[in-house]
Design a protein around this nucleic acid. Structure first.
Lengths: 223, 223
DNA sequence: ACAAAAGTGTTGTTTTTACACCCATGG
DNA sequence: CCATGGGTGTAAAAACAACACTTTTGT
């Protein structure tokens, strides 16, 4: 059987848009590069695919070694192949996005970066490569995903309140949603289960605590 | 600036799910391979990416040289990277789908294939590589796309009737839709424009001819 | 005049939206 | 007992689904 050895192939990388939600803000994790090209500019984390590796393993490797993160929700987004997107040569990127509850991890800069930082998705700096485009596409994709898959599960704590889930949806979709109609739609969808407990220690009425319905695979919401 | 020359990279291919709609049937174009691997089996058309080429150019090249087709609607679908998907070695495929009105082209087998044939999407043979999976994913994606983008434009003639558009939607979504409610939704969406003309030569009432509203970029339909 | 298929209209139901109201908590 | 925020209910509007009726054509 013939093999591919005669072909010359572009480099192949997995790039990651890591979304985190904390204090009512949706953020993306960016690295500040300490090598050319785009030295001292902010970019998405990523790595080149190894021959024996699957793309999601490449992503997991980046999350683990560059960011100290484990076991995140991961979704393939799109493949970016503009020939001049990397000044070092032809490089094709398969973009993914990951969802993380930042409270669970303390991030630290790896060897390739000066710094690692969360940026509010509404206040992103100009990014190196074509990462502005990738980040924008990822946000659109997440906004769509949240209507069809219980994404809150990945971004909130195991127990959470209705106002917390409500704020998450308003933040990600960047719209305002009537809290009472929101409650009804979420409950009708069977999205979450009441635990009977309440969140204590707040300065007014203690909201009910819910957990996600793990039986549920897909949902349909519209706002 | 460093380059990538030290990395060894997998082969990168563009694979194509070419959808055609004719006589009320949605079909996919398949090739019968005349070389190993998967000799004499049906597979999706595809080609390896050349270094100076963009993925959509690879697709266009396949459509032109293997199938004699030009200027088709093309959409990137997903990237398939299972390490053993190609027995010749590590090969990653970026799948795309194309939409074509088969009436416009006479297909002919290229040098790589014994035969080229349209297959009803509901009666696909077992395919080589992981192309069963790719074809199934492409159909799902098309079913979603048709609700948000005026896809009929690519699959029908420039002038078409409401019953023709109705049949297309029923076929692609694989559901039955009340023709009167369908008409109302399509017209309310501003999807199409009445031309005042009528389709002649039928054995009963001559239906109105419409054309697509080219101003329209995205739509929202639900059935 | 009839059958077949296409255009038009109506009605009841469900879903969505926009609110009003009451309850619990801390100060 | 008041301000704040959270839980519950309701009525109007919009969207949807199911269906009847009329019109045009070829035979």
């Amino acid at each position: 059987m013939p093999s591919f050895s005669s072909y010359k192939n572009p480099s192949l990388a997995a790039d990651l848009v890591v979304f985190g939600y904390q204090q009512g803000i949706l953020s993306i994790l960016l690295l500040n590069r300490n090598t050319e090209p785009f030295k001292d500019q902010w970019v998405l984390p990523g790595a080149f695919l190894l021959m024996e590796e699957r793309l999601r393993d490449t992503c997991a490797r980046v999350l683990k070694t560059k960011l100290g993160m484990d076991d995140l929700y991961l979704e393939q987004l799109c493949t970016y192949d503009e020939p001049n997107r990397d000044p070092r040569g032809r490089a094709i990127a398969v973009a993914h996005y990951a969802l993380v509850n930042p409270a669970r991890f303390a991030i630290t800069a790896g060897t390739m970066a000066n710094d690692v930082k969360w940026f509010n998705v509404k206040e992103l700096p100009g990014l190196g490569f074509d990462h502005d485009l990738i980040a924008a596409d990822a946000l659109k994709s997440l906004q769509h995903k949240i209507l069809h898959y219980p994404v809150g599960f990945e971004l909130l704590n195991d127990l959470f309140t209705m106002p917390e889930l409500h704020a998450l949806y308003e933040c990600i979709l960047d719209i305002s949603i009537d809290r009472r109609n929101f409650r009804r739609k979420i409950l009708d969808a069977g999205y979450i289960i009441s635990t009977g407990k309440k969140r204590e220690g707040l300065h007014n009425r203690h909201p009910d605590l819910y957990e996600f319905n793990k039986e549920l695979k897909s949902i349909h919401l519209s706002f």
